[in-house]
């Protein structure tokens, strides 16, 4: 048997083997389809199931989808739903406690996780003042989604917005006084 014929024969055999394997043992990989529909509780259940069964790498996408679904029915209780969901994610090992805290507070807290830091304002914050303010600005947009659009908590959002303005002002003055303005 010449070599082209042999290669062809091997190829056919391999294909047949693959096809028979497909027929007898269909793949059961994770579907990872983001939850649909208007009901947050059902969406959370679906998300939990997927995240427990191989979709954990897409946690952020699931979380975002849940926020969008919750926007359809904004109410104070939604804060608790998301808190429970993040606590669960921590217990399941999908997130560390620190990550869970940071995500929760980024969306549903008044304080800014962008300002977490252990060193003095002069030494740590002022050299990157504009970056810090830009991070806070982005976080304020997330708080708008979490506090206002999902939780309908205008008061908390108002406080977060006010805190942003005051922090920006105080940082501007402090960094100027520290002599480390960019």
């Amino acid at each position: 048997m010449n070599s082209p014929t042999l290669i062809r024969l091997l190829g056919i055999t391999a294909m047949a083997a693959l096809l028979s394997a497909c027929n007898s043992n269909p793949p059961r990989g994770p579907q990872c389809s983001l939850p649909e529909g208007p009901h947050l509780d059902q969406a959370v259940s679906a998300a939990r199931f997927d995240l427990e069964t191989g979709c954990e790498e897409r946690f952020q996408e699931y979380f975002q989808r849940l926020l969008v679904i919750a926007e359809g029915d904004p109410k104070k209780e939604n804060k608790a739903r998301f808190s429970e969901f993040l606590v669960w994610a921590n217990q399941e090992g999908l997130l560390s406690k620190r990550q869970a805290r940071e995500i929760y507070n980024r969306y549903f807290g008044v304080k800014y996780v962008s300002l977490i830091g252990d060193y003095s304002v002069c030494s740590h914050t002022c050299p990157r003042q504009s970056q810090v303010v830009a991070d806070m600005q982005r976080e304020l947009a997330d708080k708008e989604q979490g506090l206002l659009k999902v939780s309908a908590d205008r008061r908390a959002y108002h406080r977060a917005n006010r805190l942003f303005q005051e922090t920006e002002l105080v940082l501007e003055a402090t960094c100027s006084a520290c002599g480390a303005v960019e």
Partner: peptide, 28 residues
């Protein structure tokens, strides 16, 4: 005078987090 006070009290004695806590402290 204010510059010295702000530098010491807000710039050197506070971290960004404690500065934020100061600002929000009696907000409610």
């Amino acid at each position: 005078s204010l510059e010295k006070r702000i530098r010491r009290e807000l710039g050197q004695k506070k971290t960004p987090w404690t500065l934020q806590e100061l600002l929000i402290a009696e907000d409610t």
